[in-house]
């Protein structure tokens, strides 16, 4: 029997959140954490979490498992369970709506702030804009972000300044457009980031890198944005 400790909070009935202890019969199988949550929900439908694709591509089920952020659907028990114990909590640092569901509004706002869309001031050709495979390769490791928020909610700088520090996810996307050979708004993009908070609150702690379920490296991207900003200043 797997020992599960689950964060519970229903704003209508609970004055405070609490941890609920449960036992789950996994039949010895190396299930994904999401499977375990679904098993719990089958017997107690009030248990609340987000999920959709169940294959690690939609970014719905970012949660904190035994202290580490990740996607429940692609985290096998063998990877997280220690001493037969699994503690599941919502992603840290954001308001909890109910149980494992957090309010991602601030996270999305930071994403929108970087103007996450291609800007090109020249008229579009009749076919596609050309881009060499080498230019396209610069977007690898950037465009794959699924907006799961695992990184930003593991970042101390984001916890302290969620309104002013863009955070690793937003900055990774910022660099995705700066790095795109088809984007011509580099100067405007950099000008909007040039303040003490948006980028420079990052202290290179790399929590974001260690939790990203897609193996992306926001710290590296932030470093590149920072260099562009410093070059621009000189």
């Amino acid at each position: 029997m797997l020992q599960v400790s689950l964060y519970r909070y229903n704003p209508e009935t609970d004055s405070e959140p609490f941890m609920q202890d449960l036992e789950v019969d996994t039949g010895g199988r190396d299930l994904m954490v999401l499977d375990v949550l679904e098993m719990i929900k089958a017997s107690d439908p009030s248990v609340t979490f987000r999920r959709s694709c169940r294959e690690g591509v939609c970014g719905s089920d970012g949660v904190n498992m035994n202290g580490k952020n990740g996607l429940a659907c692609i985290t096998p028990l063998s990877e997280t369970v220690r001493n037969n114990k699994l503690v599941v909590r919502p992603l840290p640092g954001l308001p909890v709506v109910r149980d494992l569901v957090v309010d991602l509004e601030l996270f999305y706002q930071q994403y929108e702030k970087i103007e996450p869309y291609l800007q090109n001031h020249n008229p579009a050709p009749a076919i596609e804009r050309l881009q060499s495979p080498e230019e396209r390769a610069k977007l690898d490791g950037l465009y794959e972000c699924i907006l799961c928020a695992c990184c930003s909610t593991s970042c101390p700088s984001f916890w302290w300044n969620p309104e002013r520090f863009i955070g690793p996810a937003g900055l990774l996307q910022s660099y995705r457009f700066l790095a795109d050979s088809r984007d011509t708004a580099t100067e405007e993009r950099l000008a909007k980031l040039d303040d003490p908070y948006s980028v420079f609150r990052c202290h290179g702690i790399q929590n974001c890198v260690s939790v990203c379920p897609k193996g992306l490296n926001p710290t590296q991207a932030i470093g590149k944005v920072r260099n562009l900003l410093l070059q621009r200043a000189t």
Partner: peptide
């Protein structure tokens, strides 16, 4: 419709000629 997506920024893989 596909070229519109490309113009919007869809990061298609590319051929040596730079096409989709």
């Amino acid at each position: 419709a596909v070229f519109e997506l490309e113009h919007m920024g869809l990061p298609f893989s590319r051929t040596e000629q730079g096409r989709i």
